[in-house]
Design a protein around this nucleic acid. Structure first.
Lengths: 333, 333
DNA sequence: TTGAAAGCGCTAACAA
DNA sequence: TTGTTAGCGCTTTCAA
């Protein structure tokens, strides 16, 4: 089957290819009658303009890349809904680039290389441990960039993030006020909610109360539920806390399940506050009090911001902070 | 910043652009010394070949599209790991096309249109209620196609699926043999495990035992945990079953949680068997006996099969059936 | 309002 | 082993 090109349409419609080009690009100059004639031929021949050729001619691909390490996918997925919808509505294609998790610098270099070769118009990154290196590797190609999950202070780079520092500070402060000072923080493996900022918030809350956060009250966990569950069953054999704050609600499920097995009552003996408020929070027994993060919106906003960069539209701020909200459920009093 | 092109490299290296082209395409004919000289210049100028131009020249984009309705994302995500990794290793880009969930035929037409315009080399579809319409809309463009989640009997279309019919038949038969005849089947909203095939398997198992499956013992559920949970709490007020089989383990969690609230003991009074064996199965209390589906592999195999089509490599079969395995946990005796 | 023609950055005969 | 040249299918001046 021969592919229909703009020439075929031009010949069939008895006009020049420039006119066909104008029609498919909605140019206002073409006479209505000509336009209808051309459109009829396009319909008849089922002509689909070749975006590759257009891309070469215009130096634009109307494609944006999303870029993340494979291991982050479980968290990134929540944003993809918003990215997909918004991309579609604004008529951008979405190109997914993932990096291996072996994760030496080489993979960053190679994925950046693939992104550059593909000539996408812009890129969306997700915060992770190697975000700075990735930004650095991308820098010289002057690709419009938006980062999700971390506030970036650079007028050339956009970002969509949550003020987890304030959120963490508020949560911790409210417990300190109630006299609950033994708070454990469980670091998530992923970094879409920025770990460092959470730690800052916790520290500030303690300082504001004239106390100091005990570094031992901060533990790390893995991305695997099973590992975490076992880790916490072991942990609770010897330790207990009044309050546990965790960065990702899937980890929170491991925590409440482990607490249950150790016969520590939630929320009576230990209160658990999670973040992210995904479906894991409502599946858990008891259901988890959880910081809601508007994941869909973050994806949508990132695409919107990026396309504003691409169209040189004015932006109010290139560091968007989205609202979060603590949703109380049964894992806290 | 001016973009470096193949001309710049050619001039700087003192060769023709054809030679540069040969070098970047690893042509064996170019003399080693020339090759090194060119590579040095490429490195020096940080030249990244424009894939758009190459795509236009070769009529190939080395890009494959993945195509699914937004609502299916929660299920598709499990396959994307394998797709991303395999695509990267085989040097294909992955373009993600989603359809709106409003879902009239128009959205199928428009997404197919976007796929065709983008000139991807091939497409991977995920089984859903409108898969047949989508395949039909795609047909005339002769795009190499692989479907995940449903066996397709068409020599032009590849597929990667699970034999859920046999799996369901086996599970149900084993309960019937034990004298447990009151089995409820909960239809998942998603169709990656093919609902129709599961029903066939169930019916065959009953027939083989000289019985008939009661159509009332088949209920539907939604994609939302909360809806399902409420639906089953209500359901179990008046009904109970010896065994519940459900198509997706997230729904299984809603079921065991609802059973727990209604004081129906699992597995003593009711046994629950789920499918998909995602992390929801191990998070549930009790943990769910679940049919493991090799989701990562399905994604990987789909890409591999598709690239074989693209390279005219020989394929053993274009309808790949992957193995499944029932993993016993605490929701069954 | 339309057409002619150059150009986007490559690949792939074909010739040398 | 290398170079010349004609496309690939569009967009976009410029001229008419």
């Amino acid at each position: 089957m021969k592919k229909i090109t703009i020439y075929d349409v031009a010949r069939e419609a008895g006009v020049s290819l420039a006119t066909v080009s104008r029609v498919i690009n909605n140019s206002p100059v073409v006479r209505e009658k000509t336009k209808q004639k051309v459109l009829a031929v396009i319909e008849k021949l089922d002509f689909k303009p070749n975006e590759v050729a257009r891309g070469l001619a215009t130096s634009k691909t109307t494609t944006i890349a999303i870029l993340f390490p494979q291991s982050l996918f479980a968290n990134v997925k929540d944003m993809i809904g918003g990215i997909g919808d918004t991309g579609r509505h604004l008529e951008y294609n979405i190109n997914m680039f993932t990096t291996d998790d072996l994760g030496d610098e080489n993979t960053i270099k190679s994925v950046v290389e693939r992104v550059v070769k593909s000539r996408v118009d812009g890129v969306i990154l997700f915060n992770n441990e190697r975000i700075d290196k990735t930004l650095k590797a991308l820098e010289k190609y002057h690709l419009p960039t938006v980062v999700i999950g971390k506030k970036i202070d650079d007028e050339k780079i956009g970002s969509v993030s949550i003020d987890v520092k304030s959120a963490a500070k508020e949560i911790v402060s409210s417990y300190l006020e109630k006299g609950k000072k033994d708070i454990l923080y469980v670091h998530p493996q992923q970094n879409l909610v920025n770990n460092d900022e959470i730690m800052e918030g916790i520290n500030e809350a303690y300082q504001a109360a004239g106390l100091e956060f005990n570094a031992e009250n901060s533990v790390y966990c893995s991305t695997e539920y099973e590992n975490n569950y076992e880790q916490f069953v072991e942990y609770f054999k010897t330790k207990s806390h009044e309050v546990i704050l965790c960065g990702y609600d899937k980890d929170g499920v491991a925590i409440v399940n482990a607490l249950d097995d150790m016969n520590i009552k939630v929320p009576e003996q230990t209160e658990v506050v999670a973040m992210f408020n995904s479906s894991y929070s409502i599946i858990a027994r008891p259901t988890l009090t959880s910081l809601n993060v508007p994941v869909y919106d973050m994806g949508a906003l990132a695409v919107r911001l990026l396309t504003k960069f691409l169209n040189n539209e004015e932006v109010e701020s290139n560091a968007i902070i989205v609202k979060n909200l603590l949703i109380k459920r049964n894992s806290t009093k």
